Simulated assay, not measured.
Amino acid sequence: MNRTFVALGAALGMIDIMMGALSDHVVHAEVDAHLFRIFNIALRFEMYHALGLILIGLAAAHLGRSRWLLAAGWLMFAGTLMFSGSLYILVLAGLHGVAIVTPFGGSSLILSWLLFTVAAIKGAPKLH
């Protein structure tokens, strides 16, 4: 579990840097200020949660494997894909209907941090 979340966090961090370069070199010139702001929100949230996934992976090595951390990690990963991914698609493809996914991604991210908090406090129940 700990290596998986560290690797997923590192991959999201890499993708964030690539999307940031795309933002600076292409998106900035192609969209209005409102859409550019939305794109940058997606970038910011992706990097925060890339680092969050790495923290969850490192916490698993320190606190031990637990259902709380497992759920927190997968919710954080899925939430990042839903939140940032839907905003990237909205801006890059102009598919505004995909924005219906964004709040589910945000809710998943909030819940992932809550479960991470519970894992840090309780450290249990353990996986076998």
Score class of each variant (00 low, 15 high):
42 A>R: 02
56 I>E: 02
62 H>W: 12
40 N>Q: 14
41 I>M: 08
47 M>L: 12
44 R>F: 14
32 D>N: 15
52 G>D: 02
55 L>G: 15
52 G>I: 04
51 L>N: 06
35 L>Y: 09
32 D>W: 06
50 A>W: 01
57 G>A: 14
58 L>K: 05
54 I>E: 06
38 I>K: 06
61 A>R: 08
39 F>Y: 15
49 H>L: 09
52 G>M: 12
56 I>M: 11
52 G>C: 08
32 D>Y: 04
60 A>L: 12
43 L>R: 03
39 F>D: 00
58 L>R: 08
58 L>E: 10
40 N>E: 14
43 L>S: 07
36 F>M: 12
51 L>A: 10
60 A>I: 14
53 L>C: 09
47 M>V: 06
58 L>C: 14
34 H>L: 12
37 R>S: 13
34 H>I: 10
43 L>H: 02
33 A>Y: 05
45 F>G: 01
58 L>W: 11
38 I>V: 14
45 F>M: 12
46 E>M: 13
40 N>M: 08
43 L>M: 04
39 F>T: 00
59 A>Q: 03
60 A>K: 02
47 M>S: 10
49 H>D: 06
39 F>A: 00
49 H>N: 15
33 A>M: 06
59 A>M: 14
53 L>D: 00
41 I>R: 09
54 I>F: 07
47 M>F: 13
47 M>T: 05
32 D>T: 07
46 E>V: 03
58 L>T: 14
52 G>A: 15
59 A>W: 00
43 L>W: 02
46 E>Q: 15
44 R>K: 08
53 L>N: 00
56 I>W: 01
39 F>R: 00
44 R>G: 10
63 L>D: 12
51 L>V: 12
57 G>K: 01
63 L>H: 09
57 G>S: 12
45 F>Y: 15
55 L>K: 05
43 L>V: 04
35 L>H: 14
40 N>L: 07
55 L>N: 06
35 L>C: 05
40 N>W: 06
36 F>S: 09
51 L>S: 07
37 R>V: 06
35 L>G: 02
41 I>F: 08
42 A>N: 07
32 D>Q: 08
48 Y>V: 11
45 F>Q: 05
38 I>P: 00
44 R>P: 02
59 A>L: 15
47 M>C: 04
59 A>H: 03
61 A>D: 12
48 Y>C: 08
38 I>W: 03
59 A>D: 02
51 L>H: 09
51 L>I: 12
53 L>H: 01
56 I>G: 01
54 I>W: 03
60 A>N: 05
